[in-house]
Design a protein around this nucleic acid. Sequence first.
DNA 1: ATGCCTCAGCTCCTGAGA
Length: 254
Amino acid sequence: MQLATWNVNSLTVRLPQVLDWLATHPVDALVLQETKITDDKFPREAIEAAGYKVAFFGQKTYNGVALLSRNEAQDVVKNIPGFEDDMARVIAGTVDGVRVIGAYFPNGQAPDSDKFVYKMRWLDALENWLRAELLTHPKLVLMGDFNITADDRDVWDPVTLKDTIHCTPQERAHFQALIDLGTHDAFRLFEQAEKSYSWWDYREFAFRRNRGLRIDHILVSDALKASTQACVIDKAPRKNERPSDHVPVVVTLG
DNA sequence: ATGCCTCAGCTCCTGAGA
């Protein structure tokens, strides 16, 4: 079984690339972030024609998430239950017996901003919900655009970027809190190349110079750890014309 | 210097992303 996550930065722009990618990477489920599209305009037909069922939860201009799966997702949940939020950031569903949570974590903008305060509140709520979800669904995968680097290996210049957004101790403590609930950073379960990133700024030839961050993650629960066989970042779509600034991350479960 | 790209939208500039 293969599961993947991809922040597409506008599904309207990236739909052809998503369909191309699925044709060559026929994963069992794919979660998308930053679809930036309202539900009435979601390209359901094109995705179903490619052989996927889809659940989606969007809004105009910002945010927006979707869960594509070969077999229809059961018990779909949108956003964090009990957490008031006017942003579409989370979609969860059970696919082939695995609880799949796709999430677009808040950016946070800057450590001294209101958006950072919201990010911390959102992360608190996510942790409380995940604790409960793990009890009812031991086989669980949380994946998406976390907007957090787990440690300095995930940062192209950890000295210059020390304590800046995505790299603060507060954000990393929250990442660790998710791990402490009984999950594992699937990417780090395996030997990986140094300077492996999932996002590169559009500016200053950042991709060509490999000035990136690893902020797109896949956490697998304790119950899935032993069956986790691989986790790879697929950099190829970053070389497309009009690429997303993020690339897909894929996990293979036995 | 706070932009450099890219995207959406009450679109010819602005806000946001990370």
